[in-house]
Design a binder for these strands. Structure first.
Length: 439
RNA sequence: GCCCUGGUGGUGUAGGGGCUAUCAUGCGGGCCUGUCGAGCCCGCGACUCGGGUUCAAAUCCCGGCCAGGGCGCCA
């Protein structure tokens, strides 16, 4: 009967088949990448997660039944092949498998909706419609191997620095945080929203005495942006730490990114090679550019910018031209930062907010937070918001809130930097943008 | 949301008022014992949708939808 594994189990991944195994019988499992039938000899490339191995069937030397089965193969079908490893200078990795038994586990329909061998390239839209096939390409799966390593390093880093991993709700009641548009949803008889950020919750956690927390989770923004670096659902790496200020958490962020770069360079060399991307590890801390100086730099590049304005796209590009790699932008004007950002004591028009940039791409933003109840209420009102709407948040500031600071990193944007891709859709398995809601 | 460009076989494209709609890849069939972007032969398969102009529209015009690029928005 076709399609059942039965007692068969894979003995080797393709990358582990080498001449040490010659004359040994092994079982490989994977997808048919290519079939080259020369009549008297048939070559089949079987692909698994990390590579490919050639199966060679000289039609007069292998069983007729096997030849018949191979001639029934269709590209991208799933097969299990039992066979003997043979050394051959003519085979792609110097070894090939002479099949002795074959199972076709699942036939792929034809024609395929796109070509995983990339003889004919497909556009991102076509690729995303058939993402499962797209991901069979090594240059695509490599992006997600790197992303996985990044997330692992980040988790390890936080655990090594005595952070507690938390989960905050994504179903939220309030649309009053200001700024970003939220996705409204029906919550029984009420209206609710998808969370735009764990910001208020991780701050409440500072009042819990948990001291240092982090969360890696999806956030949702209902903005109608349509660019290469925005999505409506993204993964945010968030942290918040008590008894720290902006300078402290900038150091933590710098160290974390540094560790991510080191680990990826060390552990993902194959993936980086496939992507033809190199990772440079800066020798010292990332440079710090004060907002005041950024305004000057942008203007000196011929892009008009007044003090107090947020960076326009042209401004980001002008800065990105000047600064190579990662850098911090600090001392942002209070006016364009949210209510929970601590103003500078000497000059309240400036704040203790910072961004981490990579060239012209914003990767992270963070700040020392306001921990004083009265000041927080004042700042909420100043932003034109109603403090009553923040009751459950403000309550945490009335009974012992320590000074604290934190930041959030866009995990998908960071992955763009790590993989050298220029479209955020490339770094998200199933991206959600202005129009795409499937798959 | 705005501006620009576009939508042709499964995929990626050429063409651009009337002719069998180009090419590659693919798919189906055939030949071939060392392929590795295999090769050769035969065949299959397409003009985004709606309206308009015209004797005639895939081609021109208007609108919708969708896509690519840029911008805005992004506490």
């Amino acid at each position: 009967m076709q399609g059942l594994l039965k007692e068969w189990r894979r003995t080797h991944y393709s990358k582990n088949v080498n001449s040490d195994l010659k004359e040994k019988e092994i079982i490989i499992m994977g997808w048919i990448h290519e079939i080259r039938d020369l009549g008297g000899i048939i070559f089949v490339l079987v692909r698994d997660r990390d590579g490919m191995i050639q199966v060679t069937a000289p039609t007069k030397e292998v069983d007729d039944e096997i030849v018949k089965q191979i001639r029934n193969f269709r590209k991208e079908s799933v097969v299990a092949i039992k066979g003997t490893v043979q050394e051959s200078g003519k085979a792609p990795n110097g070894v090939e498998i002479i099949p002795s038994e074959i199972q076709i586990l699942n036939l792929a329909n034809q024609p395929l909706p796109m070509d995983p061998t990339e003889k004919v390239k497909a556009e991102i839209d076509t690729r995303l419609d058939s993402r499962f096939l797209d991901l069979r390409k090594q240059n695509v799966s490599s992006i997600f191997k790197i992303k996985s390593q990044m997330l692992r390093t980040v988790r390890d880093f936080f655990y090594n620095n005595e952070f507690v991993e938390i989960n905050t709700p994504k179903l939220v009641a309030s649309a009053t945080e200001g700024g970003t548009e939220l996705f409204p949803i029906t919550y029984f008889e009420r209206e609710a929203f998808l969370g735009q950020s764990p910001q208020l919750y991780k701050q409440i956690m500072m009042s819990s005495g948990m001291d240092r927390v982090f969360e890696i989770a999806q956030i949702f923004r209902a903005e109608e942006h349509d660019t290469l670096r925005h999505l409506n659902e993204v993964v945010s790496i968030d942290m918040e730490a008590s008894f720290m200020d902006d300078i402290d958490v900038i150091k933590i962020l710098n160290n974390m990114i540094q560790q991510v770069l080191i680990d990826i360079k060390t552990n993902c060399s194959e993936a980086l090679e496939i992507l033809e991307h190199e990772i440079e590890i800066p020798e010292c801390n990332f440079p710090i550019v004060r907002y005041d100086d950024a305004v000057d730099i942008v203007n000196s590049k011929g892009v008009e910018m007044e003090w107090g304005e947020d960076l326009s796209r042209a401004g980001e590009k002008a800065l990105g031209d000047t600064m190579d790699g990662f850098y911090f932008l600090t001392e942002w004007p209070s006016e364009i930062k949210p209510f929970y950002v601590m103003p500078n004591k000497e000059d309240p028009t400036k704040s203790h907010a910072f961004d981490l940039m990579y060239k012209d791409l914003e990767i992270s933003s963070g700040a020392t937070r306001v921990h004083q109840y009265d000041l927080l209420v004042e700042k909420i009102a100043e932003k034109g918001l109603n403090p009553d709407a923040f009751k459950s948040y403000l309550k945490a500031f009335e009974y012992g809130m320590p000074p604290h600071a934190g930041w959030g990193v866009g995990a998908d944007r960071l992955t763009m930097v790590l993989t050298g891709t220029n479209n955020i859709r490339e770094t998200v398995l199933f991206p959600r943008d202005r129009r795409r809601l499937t798959p």
